[in-house]
C-alpha cells in the first residue's frame, strides 16, 4: 500500500507479517502486537522491527521494547477513532522515542496535518484514495494554536501575545 511522507509517496521498507506467516529473511518486518510478544525475547538479528497496534492497544504496552523497535504503526479502525493521536504524542512526549510513527487504517486527508503535528511521520493510503488532497492538506493551515511536537517547548499558541502586546 502506498506510503506518504511529507505529502509524497515513499518506499515502504517494511514487510507486513501476520500472526501466522513465517518471517521472511533479510527484510524489515512489521508485526502485530500479539506476534511481537512471541518474538521479542529472541529476536532474529539482521533486520529492523516494527509493531502494529490496534486502537485499543495503548502505546504503554510496548514501552519497554521501544529501544529495539524502528517503527510503531498506530491503527485507526475508523477515522473517527482518535486514540492514535494520543498514542503518537505519548511516544514522542512521554517516551521521547525517535523512531518512525506510522498511521494506518482508515484515515482521511483532513487528518493528515494534525497527525504530523502529534508526531506521525508516515501515513498508509490505499492506492485508490491517493489524490492531491493529501499534499494540499499539509498546506491548508499556515498557523496553529498549539505547539507541535517539533516546535519550541512552549505554548506557541499564546506566545504571540507576548510579541504583539497590543491587539492589532
Amino acid at each position: 500500500m502506498p506510503l506518504l511522507k511529507n505529502g509524497t509517496v515513499v518506499e515502504d521498507r517494511f514487510v507486513a507479517v501476520t500472526d501466522d506467516d513465517p518471517l521472511p529473511d533479510g527484510v524489515d518486518v512489521l508485526v502485530p502486537l500479539e506476534r511481537w510478544r512471541t518474538l521479542h525475547d529472541a529476536l532474529p538479528p539482521g533486520r529492523r522491527y516494527g509493531v502494529r497496534l490496534k486502537s485499543h492497544q495503548l502505546v504503554g504496552e510496548i514501552a519497554p521494547d521501544l529501544g529495539t523497535l524502528a517503527l510503531v504503526a498506530l491503527e485507526l479502525p475508523k477515522f473517527r477513532d482518535g486514540r492514535a493521536f494520543s498514542g503518537a504524542r505519548e511516544l514522542r512526549e512521554r517516551y521521547h522515542w525517535q523512531g518512525e510513527i506510522r498511521a494506518v487504517g482508515h484515515i482521511i486527508p483532513d487528518q493528515y496535518l494534525m497527525l504530523t503535528r502529534v508526531g506521525v511521520d508516515t501515513v498508509e493510503v490505499p492506492a485508490e484514495r491517493l489524490t492531491d488532497a493529501w499534499r494540499r492538506a499539509l498546506g491548508e493551515f499556515s498557523i496553529a494554536y498549539q505547539a507541535a511536537q517539533d516546535d519550541a517547548p512552549t505554548l506557541s499558541l499564546l506566545r504571540r501575545h507576548l510579541r504583539a502586546g497590543e491587539p492589532s
Binding site: F85, R117, Y145
Partner: peptide, 16 residues
C-alpha cells in the same frame, strides 16, 4: 479565551 485558543483545532483532541 485562553481555552478557546488552546482547544481550536487541537491536533490531539479533535477526534474524541
Amino acid at each position: 479565551e485562553i481555552l478557546r485558543q488552546w482547544s481550536t483545532l487541537h491536533p490531539e483532541f479533535t477526534f474524541l
